[in-house]
Design a protein around this nucleic acid. Structure first.
Length: 572
DNA sequence: GCCGTTTTCGGCCCGACTGTTTTCAGTCG
């Protein structure tokens, strides 16, 4: 059983316990454990095999450790099953409707036999809901609006779609007169792979004017709420955006608060509460003297607590608070550390630009090298190269390299790892190349055993240097393959192969927790943009963002090495 | 249910908003 499934059980249990009216702190304990387990870099099933103590996981004590063990060993949990049996099927779905909490859901279920948003809508229209205890006409009508908004608003969208939209908004807002600060917060700033809504924070001499300009932007489809300091809107792609204008002198604590994560903030507040400090979005209050200190910057806020500044990407309550107090947060990788790209296509296969155009674009990024990795013939739809054409391409690249100074095009190929793990290009051809990227493009539904063996076989091939996106997922579209990542990481270390962090916003694969675990085990990671047009080289920043979430320093990333060291790693 | 450089028991993040209420419950972020 995977961590994500274990986490879902505990999340569900928390909901059910809440409906039952259990102790709120018990419920929170289940939620916290679920959240921690979901983001654990290592599978608990493997920890169990290796005899590790679950109680070392923060938020996991005796009871949840035992329950986790039961889940892993039997695939079921007695306590969960009996808890579920106490409630009508589907009641937890009601909790997903905004405005419906643990008190209203049982009320709707027991009084009106409602278990879905559609049924609730109907009951409201028939006037049944307004008559319930502590409800009323206004509450019922608001619920109707919220259900509509929930349908209109799309689910979480990939950061690759959200970020450009937000950057446009930010640049428009920043250019307004009187604006001092303007930045995004929330999961977007922490660079999560998907974002649910957009938070923007700013300060200005005339905040009301800024709000008025904001709601009039063409990208705004609908205004949900608008006041003197805050506006909520729905943007054209079905994304909610909140703009908050605050005082200059408390911008730091507000930005810190709205950047989150929620878990990070709760952990921080709990910790400093014990030391007599009350943390809030307005600043820090010394409880003994009842004096509020304000902070204009996040740096000042963390400094007041004796902490090292924390990059937003790692504020997830996964040990960063303690390390920051010890001033032991490593310097995370940055776009400026990147010396090259290991995954790019040209018009020789399914790319749009010539090799020379791609190389010039890479040189413009300040890179020292770039691998051209067109598809192999296995991928018919992508005009994969035959042996003859690959030989021609190698010759062309040799010629082009004569023209460049201080920049090298690496001859490469993205070869197809067939269903049986074989490579669709003979070894003697691969031996001619600087850099071979192996990737899975078919048979995504193989069993865990088969897909894992398939990828291990590719790793063992002495000519393959990098394995691209092993889980081969597409965010929101295609589920990851069942591959056993732990086995892949160990093989990559053993055979000294790099694993790719694919920077395409629809992939971001490896994902953050995979990166963390791979890094712990000593796997070298290579960021590839998978560019099919020159402009996509700019996608590198998405790879960087996800790598930062995986706590990567330059030493963990192949792209930060000099050309000589890269070639030595490839043993060419 | 978890946790401890004040605690193995007694705490558990903080504040805002809304609507139904006459002082607060419920929900949210």
């Amino acid at each position: 059983m995977k961590n994500s499934e274990i986490a879902r059980v505990f999340h569900d249990m928390a909901d059910l316990l809440e409906l039952k009216g259990e102790n709120i702190f018990k419920i929170r304990a289940y939620r916290r454990a679920a959240q921690v387990i979901e983001h654990l870099p290592k599978e608990m099933a493997i920890m169990l095999e290796q005899g590790e103590d679950f109680q070392k996981i923060p938020g996991v004590g005796d009871a949840i450790a035992k329950k986790s063990t039961e889940l892993i060993k039997t695939g079921k949990l007695e306590a969960y099953e009996s808890l579920k049996a106490e409630f009508p099927e589907g009641i937890t779905r009601l909790l997903e409707i905004p405005g419906i909490g643990p008190k209203t859901a049982p009320l709707l279920s027991s009084e009106l036999k409602i278990t879905s948003a559609a049924q609730l809508e109907e009951a409201i229209q028939e006037g049944k809901v307004a008559d319930l205890f502590r409800m009323g006409d206004k509450t019922a009508q608001n619920l109707l609006h919220k259900i509509e908004a929930m349908r209109r608003k799309d689910q979480r969208i990939p950061i690759g779609q959200a970020l450009p939209i937000v950057e446009d908004i930010l640049s428009s807002l920043s250019s307004l007169p009187g604006v001092k600060n303007m930045t995004s917060a929330g999961s977007l700033r922490r660079f999560r792979e998907t974002v649910g809504d957009i938070d923007i924070m700013g300060t200005a001499d005339n905040p009301e004017n800024v709000i008025n300009e904001f709601v009039a932007f063409p990208v705004v489809k609908e205004i949900i709420a608008k006041g003197p300091t805050k506006a909520s809107v729905i943007l054209a792609p079905g994304l909610q955006a909140d703009l908050r204008m605050v005082e200059h002198d408390s911008f730091g604590s507000l930005l810190q608060y709205f950047t989150g994560s929620k878990q990070h903030n709760i952990a921080l507040r709990t910790k400093y509460q014990k030391k007599g400090l009350k943390l809030s979005e307005y600043g820090i209050t010394d409880v003994a003297h009842d004096r509020l200190e304000k902070f204009a910057t996040e740096e000042a806020f963390y400094k007041r607590l004796g902490m090292q500044y924390l990059p937003p990407e790692i504020r997830e309550d996964q040990g960063e608070i303690e390390l920051s107090e010890e001033h032991a947060i490593p310097r995370l990788i940055d776009l400026r550390d990147i010396k090259g790209d290991f995954h790019a296509h040209s018009d020789w296969s399914d790319g749009n630009n010539t090799i020379e155009e791609m190389a010039l674009a890479a040189k413009n990024e300040g890179y020292k090298y770039m691998a051209i990795t067109d598809h192999s013939k296995g991928l018919g739809i992508a005009h994969g190269l035959t042996e003859e054409r690959l030989k021609e391409q190698v010759r062309e690249i040799r010629g082009l390299n004569q023209k460049f100074k201080g920049f090298r095009i690496l001859s490469g190929m993205e070869v197809d790892i067939r269903a049986d793990g074989s490579i669709d290009m003979p070894d003697h051809m691969l031996a001619e190349l600087d850099c071979v990227v192996g990737a899975v493009h078919s048979s995504f539904n193989q069993s865990e055993e088969r897909v894992t063996r398939r990828i291990l076989k590719a790793i063992e091939n002495p000519h393959v240097d990098i394995i691209a996106h092993p889980p081969s997922r597409l965010i929101g579209e295609r589920e990851p393959t069942a591959v056993d990542m732990e086995a892949v990481f160990k093989a990559a270390v053993k055979y000294k192969k790099a694993l790719e962090i694919n920077a395409m916003p629809s992939r971001l694969d490896l994902k953050d927790i995979h990166i963390q675990r791979a890094r712990e085990l000593g796997v070298m990671l290579a960021i590839g943009t998978d560019s099919h047009i020159a402009a996509q080289l700019k996608l590198m920043r998405f790879g960087i963002g996800i790598a930062r979430r995986g706590w990567c320093e330059p030493k963990h990333i192949l792209n930060c090495l000099s050309l000589e060291k890269v070639l030595a790693f490839f043993k060419r």
